[in-house]
Design a protein around this nucleic acid. Structure first.
Length: 565
RNA sequence: GCCUCGGUAGCUCAGUGGUAGAGCAGGGGACUCAUAAGCCCUUGGCCGCAAGUUCAAAUCUUGCCCGAGGCACCA
């Protein structure tokens, strides 16, 4: 039986995380991890904050804090938000951890030893006023092609021409506005990944099962020719480079961030060294299936750069087996905007409604095949129709009927009816499809099957109409309700990967702890007789309240942001 | 500019060679246990445009139009 290693792209430390960030990596990884755990699989789900780089330094400066202190605080904030969304990481680490420092240096050493590191001198824009080298995009000025005055040093977003910072007319720092800029020479280490082109191509091409999005981006990079890549930066905050002449340099954040997948696993292991062995997950494990989750902007780094680091080490580190890439979630057809406060952020969301509302809606509309759109109208429809009317109401009507006519206890079972055969067929079909979709990481399809399962309960109830039969044949009505109580258990179990809080709450009401629940069987025939006749059934209360038209109006206005679309 | 992906019912999307599908919204009906919920029935589409291949095209090819994204030192 394989063990499953799951990682989601590391959220960057300085940005507020919006719903698109959540649904693009951490949430689907959590749904997958929960599904596998319910099936009894051995799962390790690892995530961490990505803490290095220029934006973190600038954000700390802005907040008037030391970078280390800023990151410590932000990490705690993000960790709290993740917990609020029930993201059940085995460990949520930090790329600034000692473990990652050690591993990053180790990889650099191995690459050096294998002749894959080269010192090169480059020209970089330096801001005298700020005493800092500026990454290309932090230099702005007038585009030499179209005259646009807000062009960035890497690309003009007006005419889309690619630029070098030196091309800009009247360049200035986008951080301070200072025009006191000059090109300075600086030495950097380059990873000679061009030498690994053939190995990378062979490796990528063997993974024919990867999503089109992932393969096409990876192969595009190879087709254009892999370029050697600088893996150091002129910054103070980061992992120092132990090398003469590199005293004021650190490793590039994109070099050390993916290594933190391993680093975080070691953090996890170091916390309880007796029972945990990080190397068994990462060093030449024969039985580990490694699945990564990320949004599409991360794909080149996970399919080219990081594998180049791993391969180049010459050591048997685990390479990814499956890359699940996501497109963007848009907000009313435009982008979520961190700076413009446009769209819904994780903290906002939890303030409005419990996490399960968001988890379900986001997974139901996940940007899997193409970019997807979040609107409050769609949100309200999905929550109201699926969660409140279909699932919530099914639970409610069964619980109310049992309370009213059977003293809130599971009634006695009778003979199976023809309606029950149809029900079983539906459970087999939709349950099987749900399992298959989750196995193959097709989340939208999975939600459709979950919803179809829930609906089959309402169909069964309507066809058997226990509120009617109770008058003439109490036993027949009792049987239907006993079966329905088992259905609630099946539905709640199936919902656990998506809405773990509500699912567990329903199981508690049925006096079945989440710990004793397991995933769906292939055959449900014995499943509908599991609840013991006479055992109590609590009312879990209203599972999901509806999103009202006035909520939609208020929230649309509140989150429209400062930017015009 | 180059490349990738997409354009299917009012909306969100599934469907990769063989008589157009789902959910939601809209319309009708029977019911009443329930968060006016659920259930049954139903209206609705030159499958972006044009040409080609084929006995047969939403599906394959080419061109065009429209949208989104990638193009490596921004994380």
């Amino acid at each position: 039986m394989p063990r499953y290693l799951i990682t989601s792209a590391l959220p960057y430390i300085s940005d507020a995380k919006h719903l698109g960030n959540l649904v693009g990596s951490m949430l689907p990884a959590d749904v997958y991890a929960r599904f596998l755990r319910l099936r009894g699989e051995d799962v390790l789900y690892i995530c961490a904050t990505d803490e290095h780089g220029t934006p973190a330094e600038l954000a700390a400066l802005n907040a008037g804090l030391e970078v280390s202190e800023y990151c410590r605080k932000q990490h705690a904030v993000l960790k709290g938000l993740c917990e609020g969304f029930f993201l059940a990481f085995d460990h949520f680490g930090r790329s600034s951890s000692p473990q990652n420092h050690e591993l990053t240096k180790h990889f650099a050493d191995m690459l050096e030893r294998n002749g894959l590191i080269e010192e090169r001198t480059t020209q970089q824009m330096f801001s005298v006023a700020e005493n800092r080298f500026l990454p290309d995009r932090y230099v702005v000025g007038t585009c030499p092609h179209c005259g646009y005055t807000g062009a960035r040093g890497d690309q003009c977003e007006n005419c889309t021409n690619l630029l070098e910072p030196g091309d800009l007319i009247e360049p200035r720092s986008s951080v301070s506005g200072s025009t006191e800029l000059e090109m300075r020479e600086t030495k950097h280490l380059f990873l000679r990944q061009s030498l690994m082109t053939d190995r990378l191509r062979a490796w990528i091409e063997q993974h024919e099962d990867w999503p089109v999005l992932v393969r096409s981006i990876a192969l595009k990079w190879l087709d254009e020719g892999i370029k050697d890549r600088s893996i150091t930066r002129d910054l103070k905050w980061g992992i120092p480079v132990d090398r003469p002449g590199f005293e004021n340099k650190v490793f590039y954040v994109w070099f050390d961030a993916p290594i933190e997948y391993i680093g975080a696993t070691k953090e996890w292991s170091d916390a309880h060294p007796a029972g945990r062995d990080w190397k068994s997950w990462w060093v030449d494990p024969a039985d580990v299936r490694y699945v990564q989750f990320m949004a599409k902007d991360n794909i080149p780094f996970h399919t080219v750069t990081f594998p180049a680091t791993i391969m180049g080490s010459g050591e048997p580190w685990k390479l990814v087996d499956f890359v699940k890439g996501f497109n963007w979630l848009n907000y009313y057809g435009g982008k979520f905007s961190t700076s413009g406060k446009r769209g819904v952020f994780m903290a906002d969301a939890l303030e409005l409604l419990p996490a399960d509302y968001w988890r379900y809606q986001l997974m139901a509309n996940a940007p899997e095949g193409a970019d997807a759109t979040f609107t409050w109208e769609i949100f309200a429809d999905t929550v109201n129709k699926d969660l409140a009317d279909t699932f919530g109401n099914f639970v409610n009507r069964v619980v109310k009927l049992v309370a009213m006519h059977f003293e809130a206890k599971v009634p006695a079972y009778g003979e199976a009816t023809t309606e029950e055969n149809d029900l079983l067929e539906g459970l087999r079909e939709h349950g099987g499809a749900l399992t298959a979709s989750l196995e193959s990481l097709q989340f939208r399809k999975a939600v459709q099957s979950l919803k179809a399962m829930w609906a089959s309960g309402n169909i069964y109830l309507d066809r058997t109409a226990p509120w009617k039969s109770i008058k003439a044949d109490r036993d027949a009505a009792g049987h239907v309700l006993a079966v329905s109580i088992n259905l609630i258990r099946v539905f709640a179990t199936a919902s656990l990967p998506f809405i773990p809080d509500t699912g567990a709450r329903v199981l508690r009401a049925l006096r079945i702890g989440p710990g004793s629940s397991r995933w769906l069987p292939g055959d449900f025939s014995s499943e509908l007789r599991l609840a013991t006749a006479g055992s109590p059934v609590d009312d879990p209360g209203v599972l999901f309240k509806k999103v009202l038209p006035e909520d939609v109006a208020a929230w649309s206005a509140r989150f429209a942001g400062s930017e015009r679309r």
